[in-house]
């Protein structure tokens, strides 16, 4: 106990409640819209309390199966990106902080530079690459005249190689998103705070680098990995621009894309806010659940690390 200032405590609570009311406002209205009929939602002013249509609205939006399929896609993509991103960045952060090798700083700055090359900036060429990732290989085979040898060796025709594409595939949705400066940055910061003595001790014990990573660094980073995984899962679930382009087939689209397309796609129609908000709630539920359920774990991890 530091000091007793009841007025300050009360002020804190008041400010928190006020702030949270403002933060939760959009959700509350989404909920209202999702629990009414379209006619009620379009009333001016809109009702201020929830109605009884939520079940019917949810039934309507889930009836044709597309939403279910898109939610599954979102799940696959989110888990894929999360696992991929964490593995890739933990490995490179390890390499950068614990090894001395030529071009170490170059590697660091290259990774850092991707912070300045977000996908929005290079979207058209990235799409071209993803549509035809093996184009350079095919070009190489053609110019060197080794196409025949390649076909004999692999059993694939050069034409098939050229046409091989990441469009409308899970690999296409996942791979380009697995590189991450932010995550590498975070692990690097974390590793830098780990006492040097640990490595000295491990070296005295004759532990190999991989052993050190698995036995020492991994346990120490676990809470951070969980925290990061929450963030990455949500980040991947909510991706917008890339899935919008790399999937052209609605059956491969993620749930966010599916909903966004419904809202923007019909200029002549009155948006069915009740159904759209029902879908929005369903689509937002998984990442919110992840954040809420893992939050306790996350907090526990933080408290533990303080001891």
């Amino acid at each position: 106990m530091i000091e007793r200032t009841p007025w300050l405590d009360r002020l804190c609570h008041a400010m928190l409640i006020l702030g949270i009311a403002a933060v939760c406002l959009p959700l509350y209205y989404a909920l209202i819209a999702a629990t009414h009929t379209l006619q009620d939602v379009l009333q001016v002013p809109m009702p201020l309390t929830p109605g009884g249509e939520l079940w019917n609205n949810l039934k309507t939006v889930t009836s044709n199966g597309t939403l279910g399929r898109q939610l599954t896609n979102s799940l696959i993509v989110s888990v894929g990106v999360t696992v991929g991103k964490i593995s890739v960045s933990i490995l490179s952060a390890f390499a950068i902080t614990y090894f001395r090798f030529p071009f170490r700083m170059t590697a660091f700055w290259l990774i850092f530079a991707t912070l300045m090359l977000p996908i929005e900036v290079r979207i058209v060429p990235t799409f071209a690459v993803a549509a035809h990732p093996l184009q350079p290989l095919a070009w190489l085979l053609e110019t060197t005249g080794t196409g025949g040898a390649f076909e004999w060796l692999t059993g694939w025709s050069v034409e098939a190689v050229v046409k091989w594409s990441l469009l409308d595939s899970y690999a296409g949705l996942i791979l380009p998103l697995t590189a991450s400066a932010t995550a590498t940055f975070l692990f690097r910061q974390l590793f830098l705070t780990i006492p040097e003595e640990l490595l000295e001790a491990a070296k005295i014990d004759g532990a190999s680098p991989m052993r050190f990573l698995v036995d020492v660094l991994w346990p120490m980073s676990r809470t951070n990995v969980v925290a990061l995984a929450v963030i990455l899962f949500v980040f991947s679930w909510n991706q917008y621009l890339w899935p919008l382009l790399i999937t052209t087939d609605p059956a491969m689209a993620t749930a966010v894309i599916g909903l966004a397309k419904q809202i923007s796609g019909a200029p002549e129609a009155v948006p069915k806010w009740n159904l759209l908000m029902s879908s929005a709630l369903l689509i937002t539920l998984p990442p919110v659940m992840v954040v809420i359920v893992l939050q306790r774990w996350f907090v526990k991890g933080l408290v533990d690390s303080e001891k």
Partner: peptide, 28 residues
């Protein structure tokens, strides 16, 4: 960089960086 480090495992460092660098090169 860590004052104490693995100075004799250069090849491993490159291997550890490879996945990130491959993805960065192709897609970034």
């Amino acid at each position: 960089i860590k004052r104490v480090n693995f100075e004799r495992h250069r090849w491993l460092a490159f291997l550890l960086l490879a996945p990130q660098m491959l993805i960065l090169t192709v897609f970034v």
